[in-house]
Amino acid sequence: MTEVKVTYDKSVDAAYVYFTEPQVRARSAHMYPCAPVDVDGMINLDFDEHGRLIGIEVLAAGSKLPEYLLKSAERLDADDI
């Protein structure tokens, strides 16, 4: 099974799901925001210069992502989940 890197900052309740290889530092060339009304929060899709999806930023992540995923995510804050 392929592992996907996920980071989470509980202090701002934001998570990022990476779709790039761990050693690759891809830069976002285009961000597509999903309509907040449609998802009851904010989800941003990041694409590279070739139009490939490189990651998803999830705001209000605590209510959008499964708890097991947030617990296993790399923490960017000092708080515990």
Rank of each mutant, 00 (worst) to 15 (best):
E21T: 13
Q23G: 05
L53D: 07
E3G: 04
K5E: 15
S63A: 15
S63L: 12
V24E: 13
D79A: 14
S72D: 14
V6F: 05
E74P: 02
V17T: 08
V4C: 02
R75P: 04
I43S: 08
A35K: 10
G41I: 05
M42S: 13
V37T: 12
A78F: 14
F19A: 05
L76E: 15
A26V: 02
D79Y: 11
C34K: 03
L65W: 09
R52K: 12
D80A: 09
E3T: 15
E57H: 10
K10Y: 08
L65Y: 06
G62Y: 10
L59I: 10
S11E: 15
A29M: 00
P36Y: 06
I43N: 15
E57V: 08
D79M: 14
I56P: 01
S11P: 00
L76D: 06
T2N: 13
Y32S: 08
R27A: 11
G41K: 09
L59N: 07
A14V: 15
V24S: 04
F19S: 04
L53F: 02
E21W: 07
A35R: 11
Y32D: 07
D48K: 01
V6A: 04
D77E: 08
C34V: 14
L76W: 03
V4Q: 07
K10R: 15
I54P: 00
K64F: 02
Y16W: 03
G41P: 06
E21P: 02
A73H: 10
A15P: 06
K5C: 02
V4D: 03
D48S: 02
F47G: 05
F19D: 03
V39E: 00
R52P: 00
T2V: 09
D79Q: 14
K10Q: 14
S72E: 15
E21R: 14
A60H: 12
P36A: 06
G51S: 05
D9E: 11
A60G: 13
H30Y: 11
D77S: 07
K71P: 04
V39P: 00
C34G: 06
P36H: 08
V6H: 03
D40S: 12
A29P: 00
A73I: 07
L76I: 06
D80P: 02
A29T: 00
A60D: 14
D13K: 01
Q23V: 07
D80C: 09
G55N: 04
V39L: 06
D38Q: 11
E49I: 07
P22H: 10
F19L: 14
S63I: 03
T20H: 03
G51T: 05
K71I: 11
H30D: 00
E74G: 02
S72I: 00
A60N: 15
H30K: 12
G62C: 02
R75G: 10
D77W: 07
S63N: 15
V12R: 08
A29E: 01
V12P: 04
S11R: 11
G62Q: 13
G41Y: 07
D38R: 11
F47E: 03
A73F: 09
D77N: 09
Y18S: 13
L59V: 05
V58N: 08
P22K: 12
A29V: 00
V58I: 15
L65T: 13
H50T: 13
Y8Q: 05
S72H: 13
T20I: 11
H30G: 00
S11Q: 13
R52T: 12
V17A: 09
Q23T: 14
A61D: 10
V24R: 10
